[in-house]
């Protein structure tokens, strides 16, 4: 499953298909996609999380979490990432540097920090995002196309409980 083209159309292709199938068109409707627990999850550009079952000839969309987490204190979300870590689905919000002094252009477009949320699935209620204060020994690598997590125990060159990010 991908978003592609100038408009960021959502499309998928199964093994054996001879062409891509467009699922949704629009102006960049999705921020990120991940495959998690045998389903594709898409993060809408307003933060809503959907799951897609593309096993049948008519793919089905299920709304998982409509209410996205927000940032407080004047911080503006710069980018959202989906990443799987130790079996959990994480949503990472990247925000710009926030400075009360509006006349400090040197800090424009600099990342100020991140907030990490975990999708908490409760049997009787809709799943919801819960802030995570620590990811233990995990290490996140956030990318424009895909994000991954690894264990700092297995890769001691990396710092635990840290997010490695690149310029987008």
């Amino acid at each position: 499953m991908i978003t592609h083209g100038e408009q960021g159309d959502l499309a998928f292709c199964r093994a054996g298909d001879e062409s891509w199938t467009i699922l949704r068109r629009g102006f960049r409707p999705y921020d990120d996609i991940i495959y998690h627990k045998e389903r594709f999850y898409t993060l809408g550009n307003h933060g809503g999380l959907d799951a897609w079952d593309v096993s049948s000839s008519s793919p089905k969309r299920t709304v998982i979490a409509q209410v996205p987490p927000v940032l407080t204190g004047g911080r503006v979300i710069h980018k959202r990432y989906l990443v799987e870590s130790s079996g959990d689905l994480l949503l990472v919000l990247r925000h710009d540097y926030f400075d009360d002094d509006a006349n400090s252009p040197s800090q424009l477009h600099r990342t100020g920090g991140f907030k990490v949320f975990k999708l908490e699935e409760r049997s009787s209620m809709n799943p919801r995002w819960v802030e995570v204060k620590s990811i233990g020994d995990r290490v996140l690598f956030l990318g424009d196309n895909y994000s991954v997590s690894i264990s700092a125990r297995e890769f001691p060159e990396c710092s635990a409980n840290c997010i490695y990010f690149t310029d987008d």
Partner: peptide, 17 residues
Amino acid sequence: VHDLGIFNIQEKTIQSC
């Protein structure tokens, strides 16, 4: 200005690269 680095979740600090 490049915008890349390592963010420490506990300390909420960024180490620029």
